[in-house]
Design a protein around this nucleic acid. Structure first.
Lengths: 331, 331
DNA sequence: TTGTAGGCGTTATCAA
DNA sequence: TTGATAACGCCTACAA
């Protein structure tokens, strides 16, 4: 059986309250007894019981990390960043897979409200009115969002400037001497991030070439990427550059280009998204527009912990700038 | 503020103990009052406070899942399987990244011992004597292992028959009419799983062809896979088949084969490992030897929960059989 | 069948 | 500076 605070009190010959004060660095304990108690605690390797602590303080020291799926290749880094910050402050992180379902998300927020968690970080969530908003409204002070835009409500958020991603891609491709035409190939055009990227891309494209450039959407899978290439070369000639947002599709596109006997980056340049595993194994290695996800996750976690410790914090909305990471698919 | 058990008691006009009994389906409550109480509980959406519950019952309802790294592409499925089983039984899962470090592992087991967790599942752990063994010995009844072999200690374990993986690969390749020679390309030969696979492969190979076959080791990265191909074709001629255990290396190998102007599977057949993301995106799609990781994880979780609920459980050591999942890299 | 009372390990509020 | 003492929300003998 582990030693308890009560045990320490008995051994030190003082009251439990004194031990508690000493252990928690609270005032009202003589330096002498404090040292005595800390010595004992160290000697017997005392660890407070978090359940008891939580019960007394009305907190769990658990924060929930809501993810729409576990397989996203960027999440391991994000998770690690959140955990590091949280663990350093004595918090545990539980991963909650919402599978993109509003019901599941609401269910987890419900747990938050029932004091199962002290706080929640929601990543890439889909805004879903009603129930969600209501719960969010009631939990304003223990929720932080990462890359989730909520127009109706002001919650602390850490957001990537997706529009700027499009701008960067277009500028990078169109400033390169050889390519005067660039096309954008995006996945689900309905998604907020994709439409923002498109806006940015078209705006920059228009600014630099006078035309918004060609846009192909609905290209998500590897196979999609493969197919779209042949559609494109029917009406456009190299040299040509692509800003393709789904890296999986980029793999297919690369394959199609090689199959067609063309060269990368001489005939076709490519910019993908995110410095993840896929970008790394692509051959040639993908040049990508990357978001500082690790930094965002760490900041989001700090932000949340701060909210939990201090009484009120002004909702912090922070926008992060993407950057190009040069690989071998661009000149 | 959420309703507590005490609130329900007051509303129902009974004692707290009666409410507790009713809620926990314990005998000693009249059908009438039980229904009354359940009705109230439902109406006010009562949820027990887990901290209080845990404190009283001396359990946390948290199990820890120790993983050597978060980036392994097979883990998302494993995690999901563990979570599903655990959540269904009212347990929460916290992910612990040991980064393969014995110190970190020991630290987490320490938490286990301090009642931070009720139980632990260790995946792909590296046996490391001393401290680990001591902790494990003291926690025999709340630890379950997945693919971790511990010779010194009898702990419930769920293991893949890696040797059989080698056997299956060899049999599949050598029974195919065209290929009378098969080579094995493995990663870190020091690893238990790799050496088992090698044993199995060589044994089956010897049985079928009279020779153990060629073995190349230390091939882990994509680049390694690319390079090794040219070493091999210097002294062997197609048709030839490869059992290559690292899928990343398999990608490189595939690329090298294509670069050399050869055909897959006509000239070279390939078998990789695990039906993961990489196997799926390889082109052509990899034929692999797969282990039933989802099933194993689910069983491990059930196993652990059972150990936590019942007094004693005989340590269950279960060995799972791999199987071939046919892709396009074999005939 | 029900209620009373004590305890789980901490924290916090009073007095002393 | 300290020590009782009462919470926190729930469970579980034991008594009624």
């Amino acid at each position: 059986m582990a030693v308890t605070l009560k045990d320490l009190a008995r051994m030190a010959g003082v009251a439990e309250s004194t031990v508690s004060r000493a252990l928690n660095n609270k005032p009202g304990v003589s330096e002498e007894t404090r040292e005595e108690i800390l010595k004992l605690a160290a000697e017997y390797n005392y660890q407070p019981n978090r359940l008891a602590q939580g019960l007394a303080k009305k907190k769990t020291s658990i924060i929930a990390l809501l993810l729409p799926d576990l397989k996203n290749l960027s999440y391991p880094d994000l998770i690690a960043a959140v955990e590091e910050v949280a663990n350093d402050s004595g918090y545990q992180v539980v991963l909650c897979n919402t599978a993109g379902s509003p019901e599941k998300t609401a269910a987890y927020l419900d747990l938050l409200q029932r004091n199962q968690f002290d706080g929640v970080i929601i990543v890439d969530g889909t805004p879903t009115g009603g129930k969600f908003l209501q719960l969010a409204l009631e939990n304003k002070n223990n929720m932080v969002l990462i890359n989730m835009l909520l127009e109706e409500l002001l919650l602390p958020s850490h957001l990537t400037d997706y529009r700027q991603e499009g701008v960067l891609a277009a500028e990078f491709l169109l400033n390169s001497a050889d390519s005067q035409q660039a096309a954008m190939i995006l996945g689900d055009g309905q998604e907020y991030r994709e439409s923002e990227r498109r806006e940015g891309f078209m705006e920059a494209s228009r600014r630099l070439t006078g035309s918004g450039g060609e846009v192909f959407s609905g290209v998500e899978s590897r196979e999609d990427g493969y197919q779209v290439f042949f559609q494109i070369v029917e009406r456009m000639e190299p040299p040509l550059s692509f800003y393709i947002t789904e890296n999986l599709a980029a793999l297919g596109l690369l394959e199609a280009i090689k199959t067609g006997g063309y060269l990368v980056p001489e005939d076709f340049q490519l910019i993908g998204t995110g410095s993840n595993f896929i970008a790394g194994i692509a051959s040639p290695q993908l040049t990508v527009v990357d978001e500082p996800l690790t930094e965002m996750a760490g900041n989001a976690a700090s932000n949340l912990l701060q909210m939990l410790s201090e009484e009120k914090v002004e909702p912090e909305i922070r926008v992060y700038q993407p950057e190009i990471i040069t690989g071998e698919t661009t000149l």
